[in-house]
């Protein structure tokens, strides 16, 4: 238990009469790469929103880095080291790319330590995702994959210990998927960031994840070694029908 970064106990969320999530138990270890899969509408994004504080969970609780997060707002959780990227990129549209990255530097990193040269740090961060030459452009100029990279760069700018990447590759071509995968791998291996990846692209998930969790209809039905999980009968049934 000592090396658990994120622990979820009995988490539940209802929208009116619809049970979106029920009794979710989850543990993510420090430095782990976890894949979270499930058919459409299985509650993956709801879980992410509950973890990040965008939605309030009805039951259960979330522990992160030795603290209970219940009742904390989204920005407070980000400041504790939990970052997310959005499924559909949500850049700050009137700001340049460099300014986009400036926000988490000003509102998260600078609360922990001094950032000597914010402008240079923005460009460095853009350089990590290969967007340094577009630092003064607006997000509207970017292609789809560049937008995803910006989204990841902004999440990483907050120097998180946990990154939740919500379908960072949906709609990208094979080569682009590889590019984002390599990026996430680098963040995990070089900077020691724990990553929870939510993804539909099975090739990416299988390649990336050390462990796989499967959600179906708001319940966790499997948790373990990826290669074994995908052969499990109920997982196959959930995806392909029995």
């Amino acid at each position: 238990m000592t090396d658990a970064l994120l622990t979820v106990f009995g988490l539940g969320k209802r929208f009116g009469g619809f049970v979106a999530l029920a009794d979710i138990e989850l543990e993510v270890k420090k430095g782990e790469r976890l894949g979270l899969i499930g058919p459409n509408g299985s509650g993956k994004s709801t879980l992410v929103n509950c973890l990040c504080g965008t939605l309030r969970n009805d039951t259960g609780s979330v522990r992160f880095d030795g603290r209970t997060l219940d009742g904390l707002k989204a920005h407070e959780r980000t400041r504790l080291g939990m970052a997310r990227s959005f499924q559909l990129p949500r850049p700050f549209g009137t700001m340049t790319l460099a300014e986009n990255l400036r926000i988490p530097l000003l509102y998260v990193v600078q609360l922990r330590k001094a950032v000597p040269n914010v402008d240079r740090r923005c460009v460095e961060l853009l350089d990590l995702v290969g967007l340094a030459d577009k630092a003064d452009h607006l997000p509207a100029d970017l292609t789809q994959i560049e937008m995803r990279k910006l989204e990841l760069a902004r999440a990483m700018a907050a120097e998180p210990s946990l990154l939740i990447a919500d379908e960072a590759m949906a709609g990208l071509s094979n080569r682009e998927v590889d590019e984002i995968l390599a990026l996430l791998m680098r963040m995990n291996e070089q900077q020691g960031v724990t990553i929870v990846m939510i993804e539909h692209i099975m090739r990416a998930v299988m390649h990336f994840s050390q462990r796989l969790v499967v959600l179906v209809a708001g319940r966790k039905i499997a948790d373990g070694d990826p290669a074994e999980i995908v052969r499990q009968d109920d997982v196959v049934a959930a995806y392909l029908g029995s």
Partner: peptide, 15 residues
């Protein structure tokens, strides 16, 4: 950031 996208603002640590 509030003008541009409040959800993204919260996710970037803006109260």
């Amino acid at each position: 950031t509030i003008r541009d996208d409040e959800l993204a603002a919260e996710a970037s640590g803006v109260p």
